[in-house]
Nucleic acid binder design. Structure first.
Length: 246
DNA sequence: GCGACAG
DNA sequence: ATCTTGTCGC
């Protein structure tokens, strides 16, 4: 892994932002992997890992769940102290090391990883998924429930399951205006107009294009809003948390 | 001062 | 993210 990019929570804000620019420069936002992208989500496809966290006071419970189609290949977790608060734009400096600790407990080598947060949809194009994806040099995708920055090319309301709307760079993003940095992806939707589900905001982490990131999210979603690897990681983190109590 | 943004 | 009962809708 790229040790020089491991997040340092003790760095100054300026240093953190400078490192994010270096990470964005080291990241690749085009497809760069060996496995068959169309097989993602199938039982004969690549190993897809999901990462999520739960919190207790100033500690983080990080969980990683590796899947292949409908089966769980391995689950791992780590409980780590949190040194800095949540700051929009600097999330990887708070949760990065706890996540890396969980990966150290993992014996499987996932082919790609889905993170809970943004990737390229970030002020300096270096969100959590991009940062950790570069450190581990693994194809990664950022799956967020809310939009950090960027502009949807069209309305993201009332989308049907399977649909997507492009998210482009705006003045808040360190990229040429109009650069496609991700997609609003509707993994689930109700038929009746009474109840509705908001889309997910998907962006490339590392070694994947925005289109492919959206494809994988839809391919691994199984009837729920969150893709399966992420749902399983969320559940695992919650399980570990309740085991620890307070 | 105003605006405002993942988890 | 987390604190939390009931409640609306399928």
């Amino acid at each position: 892994m790229r040790r020089e990019f491991v997040p340092d929570p003790g760095a100054s804000r300026a240093e953190m932002e400078a490192q994010q620019r270096d990470i964005a420069a080291a990241a690749t936002f085009i497809d760069d992997f060996e496995f068959d992208s169309d097989a993602v989500g199938s039982d004969t496809g690549p190993l897809v890992a999901g990462v999520d966290q739960a919190f207790l006071d100033d500690r983080a419970v990080s969980a990683v769940v590796v899947t292949r189609g409908d089966s769980v290949v391995e689950r791992a977790h780590a409980v780590s102290p949190l040194s800095i608060p949540y700051i929009p734009g600097l999330l990887s400096f708070r949760e990065g090391n706890p996540i890396l600790a969980a990966f150290e407990e993992l014996s499987t080598e996932p082919d790609c990883v889905l993170f809970d947060g943004s990737g390229r949809i970030h002020f300096r194009q270096a969100g959590l998924a991009t940062h950790i994806g570069v450190v581990l040099d693994v194809p990664s995708v950022g799956v967020a429930k809310n939009l950090l920055c960027g502009a949807p090319e069209a309305s993201t309301e009332g989308l049907a399951a399977g649909e997507r709307v492009g998210i482009d760079a705006d003045e808040d993003v360190d990229a040429p205006a109009g650069t496609r940095i991700g997609y609003a992806v509707q993994t689930k939707q109700y038929e009746s107009p009474n109840r509705h589900v908001n889309p997910l905001y998907v962006s490339p982490g590392h070694r994947v294009s925005a289109e492919t990131a959206a494809d994988w999210t839809l391919a691994t979603a199984a009837g729920y809003k969150l893709p399966e690897p992420t749902r399983l990681a969320d559940a695992h983190a919650a399980d570990v948390k309740r085991t620890i109590d307070t």
